[in-house]
Structure formats: structure tokens, C-alpha cells
Design a protein around this nucleic acid. Structure first.
Lengths: 348, 348
DNA sequence: TGTTAGCACTCATTTAAATGGAGTGCTAAC
DNA sequence: GTTAGCACTCCATTTAAATGAGTGCTAACA
């Protein structure tokens, strides 16, 4: 559809404008374009075309007699049609990092960091939400006369535990029974499948120990419900200082960095993102397209990774609108690939 | 000793200067002091005294013909001798927060946040290091044909788990034996007490399953060694933007905030702090007294909390040198008290 | 001997004006 | 359809002047 609006020459000029602006961050004028492209057109001609492009909404003038900068629509066109999809080689360093870090948390933090160092933007990585994950194993053990330890393992090897304080003592035999009861009833079930009927049945069978069952179920829900418990790892937020358009006023910078510190808002963005099941997994939010108000001057690029079936999280990069989209996407792809299926990998 | 250097009048003037500067952040001149104190001295007299105070190193002039601001030495004198030690009432809000948050992590993050909101400075809270903590309970269970789950509980109810991949299968009886072996040998021991002899003995008794014992021991070490694994929760870093002397140049601000993001450096500060066993638990680092270079224009106030015996962490506040030391210390004390012994509290 | 008024001086900050230059829109000619 | 040329706009930077807070010093006073 946009093809109708823009002929080839206009497209070329728009492309040149955006690329130049991505590099310099300064409004670009007609003369620059005429000089540094192989179009062989005079600045005057370029000016005419630029006037058209402005009227069509692809570029704007920050003020009279300044050069042009891309509008959100311009960036969008660039991302959708102009950008080259280089599929560069995997950066071994990243592989290394991932293969040599042990714990999930550390991996994610590391990913955020690598990404930030690589791109010079701010990054965020959300902990996976364990959607549709299933219970594999439950165990209650007595660690003290009055304390019970509940351990829950999911099929993707996520482990959670909780200490339950007992009001009355409990003997070993009962404990065995409870363990059996829980395992036989819950194993193999996803959170959504644990319905009221199951719960009622369980409680009934547990008899006087219904309280304990309740607590265990809470922990199960917590382990797998997850949504509320999404963690966000961020890195490189101070990179944003490098882009004057984001940090010229202390207030602006402060607001933006606060958003990263708060994380709550980021979490909402991430959740929204996870719901978009389709797509190659890479999403681009330009300026106001982003659901987070404070990021109206930024672009956000996110990718969804999937550690195991149903265990998904998001990696995201936040930078100025004139970010190096190609590089950013490449990086995201690489890291996404490294993360995909990592849970199954650790098995061997 | 300083009492010899400073007579009462000088002390009063110094006090007035510092208090005024804490409020305004502007260099304070002789006229201001003469006007807004009950000393009833003319500005000229004050000027003479100020000249003396400057010579003694308590205050400095940022440039000729500017007012005076406190030097590090001045702040130090203030903190050590001048400051009032108001012991204000406990803020119920904080109590509420702590009593209603469940998980340790969340508590700590919450503490950081409350503190930041309350003081308008940047805050950090370190996760407790489990020094001298003892093993209470160990359990191995088979969660899959080829996967073993090791759960370790310490006396302060810290739980850690690890999935161990098996090379050969293992039958239930052996598992029971291993469990018994581990518990009978390790329970009640602190990390330092698990020496080579114990380990050798354990491995010997485990026979062909020495590998598993090794892995379990690793996890134990990890659970209690802790030092490497100190987590730092931060909040309110963007508060630092409120103080021009810290954020006038984007570079400065960026550096400082980076330090908070990195956390590695904070961790080192925290560790150093924990080693200072003595003291009421409140430490003040003014300017260059801080071991972190990027904080040379800041003051750092820290308190040590102790969740249970040997389970200690640090709460810290970072702000401009002209921070409201009284308020900061009060807040720290309150939160420290709330945290102290919290692990034992959850028992009832 | 300690205190104070007064004055000349310093220097960061604010305000205003001057300058330079990048870039545009438009027109007329090719 | 393309281009050269020119008048015009507006931002950014420089330059200069005005302001004002604050000091140090001296001389006079109690």
C-alpha cells in the first residue's frame, strides 16, 4: 500500500535520510543527501522530494529551516520495508557466556548485560513465565518437629520450596500418605487443570490435614502461575545517556531510568508481548507505539524466547528512535536462539 | 581533641553553616549566618570566624568570593559531634510492609524501596550472607529416572535445591541410605566444620555414589558459603538526580547510576562492611572515605542487620554529602530493627 | 582586645545583543 | 523534469555588559 505513495526515487531518498540520521542524530539537509548518495540529483531536486515526503508524513522538520528527521511513520516504513535482513554469524562470545553460566537467573542477567554492551542501548530480559508447565514431583518432608518443607518440581525442572509451619504434630506415616496423595493427584497436571473439583477431592482425602494441602497448592500456584512473579533483569540503562535526545534534560533522563528501575511497567510490556503468540517473535515499538508513556521518544525491540515448551520470556532493547535496528535485531536473534530450548539442553 | 581546635562559638557557627547547607545546597555566606542565628554577631565577625574555620579545614570556598561549604572534615565533625540523635517513633507503615510481605527477596526489595521513598536518596540492601549458618536437613529424592533433587535446609530456614543428573540409575534403598548418611554426618555442622576428613569419610561410605555426595556438598557450600552470591537490591537511584551537585553533568550522573546498576562494586562495599563486626552497626562514609571511587561526592550510610545468628546483611543509603544525616540514620535504625531476628519471628 | 561598619574587589551567573551558518522555499532559466 | 540562485528563517554560538552575592581588609568604636 505504501508502495503506491512512494515511487522508487522517493524511497531511495527516504532511505538515505533515515540511514544518515541513524548515524549522526542530526537533522539531515538536502545538500547532504545530494552529495552523499549516488542518485546524482541536485539539492534543489532533493528539496522538492523532501517537501513531498514531509507532506506524506514520513519525515518532519524540527523547526523551519532545519533539516529533516524521520517521523514514527518513517521509521516504521524503514523497519518494514527498507531494512536489510542481514543474518550475521553467531557471536561465539555469547555462546560461551551462556554455556558456562550455571543458574538461570545469572544467565538472564548475563544476557541482558551482553546485549547492552554489544548494542549500547538499555536492555531488559524477563524471567520466563511458566505457562502451561506441568507438575512433575512433589515432596513434603519434616525438617523440624513443627516445620514442614514442601518442594515442587515442574517438568521443566523448575524447583520451588516453601516452609510450612505446623499447628499440630504429624507422624511419619501420615506424611507418606500425604506425599502419595499429592503426587498421584497432581503429577502431570498444568495449573489450569487443577480445578476446584480436584482441590476439593484432595482436601477431603487429606482429612484433618487439609490446611497443609492448601498451603502446598498455594505454592504450586505460585510456582506455575508466575505471571505476578515475573522478574525483569535490566542492564545498560545508563547507555541512554549517550543519546542527547533522550537525556538532554535531567528530568527526561531521570524519568526514563526510573522506568527501568521500577520494572513494574516493563513487566506489563513484557506480558503484553508474550500474549502475541504469532510473529517471528520480534516486535518493534516505535515511539508512541510503545505502551509505556515514558518511552515515547524511544524505540523498543523485543524478542520472545522459549526455554522449554510453554516456558517463555522476553528479551528487549530500548534505545533512541534512531537506533541501529539491524544490529539490534541481529543481536536479539542470536540470543534468542541461544536461549531457545536451553532447559532441555541442560539435561544431557 | 577537636574540642581544642574549636571553641564554642566556632562550633556554633560551623553547625549553622552545615545545617544551612544541608537544606539549601548552596554555599552559605556570612550574612546568612549572622541573620538567621541567635548569635547576634555581625557578618563581619562571622567572616573572621569563617576564615579561621577554613584555615582549620572544616569548610571550603568553591571559588573566591563565594560562600562556604562544609569539607569532608566538616561533615565528619558534624556527624560525630554536632548531630542530634533523635530516636523517633517507629514508622508503622514500614512494619506493615514487612509483616505482610512473604518472601525474603521481596522483603529486601521492599525495604530498599521504602527507604528510598522516605529519604529521597538512593538505597541498597544486600541479601544476607549466611555466615556460620548450620545444616539442619538434607534430602535427596528421585524426580525422574535419571534426575535427583537435592534439597538443603539450614537452621535459619534457608532452603536451596539442585537438580543432579545421574549417570547410572539408583534404587530406592540406596537413596535412603545416602539420605541417612548425609544427614547423620552433616546435620548441625557449619560450613567451616565440614573439613576434608568429613568429606573423605562421607565419600568412602557412599562407595560408588561418591559423585553424588560431591555434588551435594557443592550445593551445601553454595548455600552457606554465600559470599560470592551476595545479591544487592537497589532503589531510588534516580533520586540522585535531585541533587545538582551529583547530576549537573550527564557524565557524572551516568557514572553514579552505573555503579548502582553494576552492583558488583556495591557488593564489595557491603562485604567490607560486614567484616566490621563491632560498632553499633551504623557506619558513615563521607566523600573519599568511601571505598567506591565514583562516590567521592557522596556520603554513604550503612547499617548491618542480622536476621538470625550469623545471618547478616547490609542496608545502605547513598546521597549527596549534604544529606540529612539525622533522618537517614533514624530510618536505618527503624528498618534494621524490623529486620533483626525476622527469621526467628516467622517461626511462630 | 574583640567587634563592627564600610568599601573596593572578585567572580559566577544572568541577560542581551551580535554573528554565523545550515537549510529551506520559491522563481526563473535550461 | 531538473537545476542554479537568491532572499529569508531560525537555531546555536559567541561576545559583551549587567548583576549581585560574598569576601578581605582597614579603620573606628566600646
Amino acid at each position: 500500500m505504501q508502495q503506491i505513495e512512494l515511487n522508487e526515487r522517493k524511497t531511495k531518498i527516504l532511505n538515505a535520510i533515515i540511514r544518515n540520521y541513524l548515524e549522526t542524530g542530526e537533522p539531515v539537509g538536502s545538500r547532504t543527501i545530494s552529495k552523499y548518495t549516488d542518485l546524482n540529483l541536485s539539492s534543489a531536486t532533493i528539496r522538492n522530494e523532501m517537501a513531498d515526503l514531509e507532506e506524506l508524513g514520513y519525515i518532519v522538520q524540527p523547526h523551519t529551516s532545519a533539516g529533516r528527521i524521520p517521523s514514527d511513520k518513517g521509521y516504521r516504513f524503514y523497519v518494514d520495508h527498507l531494512m536489510e535482513d542481514k543474518n550475521r554469524e553467531v557471536n561465539e562470545m555469547k555462546q560461551f557466556v551462556i554455556e558456562h553460566t550455571e543458574k538461570m537467573e545469572q544467565i538472564l542477567q548475563q544476557v541482558a548485560k551482553v546485549l547492552a554492551t554489544n548494542t549500547n542501548y538499555a536492555t531488559m530480559v524477563s524471567s520466563p513465565s511458566y505457562h502451561r508447565n506441568k507438575v512433575k514431583f512433589i515432596q513434603l518432608s519434616l525438617v523440624d518437629e513443627d516445620q514442614l518443607l514442601a518442594v515442587i518440581v515442574t517438568q521443566s525442572n523448575l524447583v520451588k520450596n516453601k516452609i510450612i509451619n505446623l499447628s499440630e504434630t504429624i507422624d511419619n506415616e501420615t506424611l507418606l500418605k500425604l506425599n502419595f496423595l499429592l503426587n498421584s493427584n497432581l503429577n502431570g497436571l498444568a495449573l489450569e487443570e487443577i480445578n476446584l473439583a480436584t482441590i476439593a477431592k484432595l482436601k477431603e482425602q487429606a482429612g484433618m490435614h487439609g490446611d497443609i494441602v492448601s498451603e502446598v497448592l498455594d505454592t504450586v500456584a505460585e510456582t506455575m502461575g508466575a505471571d505476578e512473579d515475573i522478574r525483569i533483569y535490566t542492564s545498560g540503562t545508563t547507555n541512554l545517556f549517550k543519546y542527547p535526545e533522550l537525556s538532554d534534560s535531567a528530568e527526561k533522563a531521570s524519568e526514563l531510568i526510573s522506568t527501568f528501575e521500577e520494572k513494574r511497567q516493563l513487566a506489563s510490556l513484557v506480558t503484553e508481548n508474550l500474549l502475541n503468540e504469532e510473529s517471528t517473535g520480534i516486535q518493534v515499538y516505535i515511539g508512541n507505539e510503545s505502551p509505556i508513556q515514558t518511552m515515547k521518544d524511544c524505540s523498543v525491540v523485543t524478542a520472545t524466547y522459549e526455554l522449554g515448551e510453554g516456558v517463555r520470556g522476553t528479551i528487549g532493547i530500548v534505545g533512541p528512535k534512531r537506533m541501529d535496528y539491524e544490529k539490534v535485531m541481529d543481536n536479539l536473534k542470536v540470543l534468542k536462539n541461544s536461549l531457545d530450548g536451553i532447559l532441555s539442553k541442560t539435561r544431557d
